[in-house]
Amino acid sequence: MKRLVYLLPLVLFMGLAGYFLVALRPNHDVHELPSVMIDKPAPAFDLAGLGDPKPLALEALKGHPFVINFFASWCVPCRLEHPLLMRLSEQNHIPLYGIAYKDKPADSARLLANFGDPYRQVGIDQDGRVGLNFGVYGVPETYVIDSKGIIQKRFVGPLTAEAVDKELLPLLKKLGQS
């Protein structure tokens, strides 16, 4: 019995080491904050369109599943995912909408003019309030929303080809069928 007390530190440490091992597991980003908005209705928005007199409003988008991508011209990782967004819109023809988060409209427009415009429509969220309502804590972030306006999935950080092929596209397909 008395010897067990001396074993306690070792047992506690092994438990700790086990936790560390779990924390180190690959493909687990501890910095990623899971969204609490999943399975909840997307917050309503009605944003002025970029280079477009038509506003970007949630109500108008409902009826089909769609993807919203928060981006900004000042955001470096956004450039990283840009080619992928172009592919998504040009090859996969997904309903991709952009929200220019805390960005000057002229800068956003210049970005899209230089690198191509993957979005069906872009809304201007200059004060970042729509982003805040979505729980955006950094750009880029990408949301998949179903036809009823319920948030199904969030991607934090630049999209990767893997995430697009294995998660985003299958999810959209599933949402489109149901």
């Binding site: 904050l33 899971p34 969204s35 609490v36 908005m37 805040l132 309502n133 979505f134 729980g135 804590y137």
Partner: peptide, 8 residues
């Protein structure tokens, strides 16, 4: 805010 970002 908790509704948007969680208790984090």
């Amino acid at each position: 805010l908790v509704n948007r970002y969680g208790s984090f």
